[in-house]
Simulated assay, not measured.
Amino acid sequence: MNMKNEIDWSIPRKNINPKTKQPYKRGRNWTIVVYLDSSPEDWENIVKQEPAVISPLHDKDITEDGERKKPHYHIILSYKGNKSFEQIDEIARLLHAPIPQRINSLTGAVRYLTHMDNPEKHQYDSSDIRAYGGFDVDSALSLSTGDKRQMLREMIDFIKDNEIIHLVDFTNYCLSDNAPAGWFEILTERNTLFLKEYIKSNWQKYKSREEIK
């Protein structure tokens, strides 16, 4: 059955992060996956209007069950200012794509275009990456100071919201598949002492609250 005829792409979709079940906040960097069996013929012309980078065709990806995934492209959109989920979803619907996702690590997302950090996956040719709208791939591969600060803020929010009181627990999370790309690198690159002290303060605050009870 043709997927194009099953979905009304004119209908805006609900802003829900499938991992956290919470709405996406506004952000500068977003990703969209375009599948060849559902995308319109002019999908790349739509992408060209944005500051975007397109991966090589992912046609050799394998599922955990050993089955070949549907051929698709990964698209990264990177803006100078924050964009809402609704603004990016409008583009995704023009591409007949699944709901977009906000990117926590621009560098990690660009490296994933060819599976640079995933040797267990098929390695795609970086020469097949296409960039539009002034997207600088080389610069994206190096985290800016702003990106690092934003990522550190998100890590602090996670520690606070989840009442993390042990560095080992946070480290294990950063190493897990559930953690946003780049968190372990930020943790271990000159930020360990700061995060350790922040978690310690969080533990002291939690302990004081328990003692009052």
Score class of each variant (00 low, 15 high):
Pro12Val: 14
Thr31Val: 15
Ala179Cys: 08
Glu120Trp: 11
Arg209Gly: 06
Phe85Cys: 03
Glu154Arg: 02
Asn17Ala: 11
Phe158Arg: 04
Leu193Arg: 08
Ile212Phe: 07
Arg209Glu: 02
Leu175Pro: 04
Lys213Thr: 05
Tyr173Ser: 06
Ile164Glu: 02
Tyr132Leu: 05
Pro12Thr: 10
Ile165Asp: 04
His122Asp: 03
Ser144Pro: 03
Cys174His: 05
Ser201Gln: 11
Asp128His: 12
Phe135Lys: 02
Asp138His: 06
Val110Gln: 00
Thr63Cys: 09
Asn178Ser: 14
Lys160His: 09
Arg111Glu: 00
Ile11Met: 09
Gly27Cys: 07
Pro180Ser: 05
Glu197His: 12
Glu163His: 13
Lys70Arg: 13
His72Ala: 04
Pro12Lys: 03
Leu95Tyr: 00
Glu64Ser: 15
Glu86Thr: 08
Glu163Lys: 15
Phe194Glu: 00
Glu64Tyr: 13
Val110Cys: 08
Val34His: 00
Thr63Gly: 06
Ile62Val: 14
Arg13Lys: 12
Lys14Trp: 12
Asn5Asp: 10
Ile7Thr: 06
Gln49Thr: 09
Gln22Phe: 15
Ala179Met: 06
Ile99Pro: 07
Leu187Thr: 03
Ala140Glu: 02
Pro18Arg: 08
His58Glu: 00
Thr31Lys: 11
Glu44Ile: 15
Arg190Tyr: 11
Glu120Asn: 10
Ile129His: 01
Asp128Glu: 13
Thr145Ser: 15
Asn45Cys: 14
Glu64Thr: 15
Val34Asn: 01
Arg28Pro: 03
Ile11Leu: 12
Lys19Ala: 15
Pro98Gly: 01
Pro12His: 05
Ile75Glu: 01
Asn2Gly: 13
Trp43Gly: 05
Leu36Phe: 09
Ser105Pro: 00
Ile186Trp: 00
Ile62Met: 11
Asp125Cys: 13
Ser144Met: 11
Thr31Glu: 05
Ser139Thr: 07
Leu187Val: 08
Thr20Gly: 09
Phe135Met: 05
Lys4Pro: 01
Arg153Tyr: 09
Asn178Phe: 14
Asp8Ile: 05
Lys148Ala: 05
Ser201Asp: 05
Ile159Arg: 05
Pro51Ser: 04
Lys121Gln: 03
His166Ile: 14
Ala109Leu: 08
Gln49Asn: 09
Arg26Tyr: 09
Ser84Val: 02
Tyr198Cys: 06
Asn29Leu: 13
Lys14Arg: 12
Gly133Met: 09
Ile7Val: 13
Leu113Cys: 04
Asp89Phe: 05
Lys48Glu: 03
Leu167Tyr: 07
Asp37Val: 13
Val47Thr: 02
Lys25Tyr: 10
Ser142Met: 15
Arg190Ile: 11
Arg93Trp: 02
Val110His: 00
Arg68Gly: 09
Tyr79Met: 02
Lys4Ala: 04
Asn118Glu: 05
Tyr124Asn: 00
Pro98Ser: 02
Asn82Arg: 14
Leu143Glu: 02
Glu163Asp: 14
Asp8Met: 10
Thr171Trp: 07
Ile129Trp: 01
Trp203His: 10
Asn29Ala: 15
Ile159Asp: 01
Lys213Ala: 10
Trp30Gln: 08
Leu193His: 07
Leu187Gln: 02
Ile186Cys: 02
His74Met: 11
Asn191Glu: 07
Phe158Asn: 04
Asn118Leu: 15
Leu94Ala: 08
Leu113Ser: 04
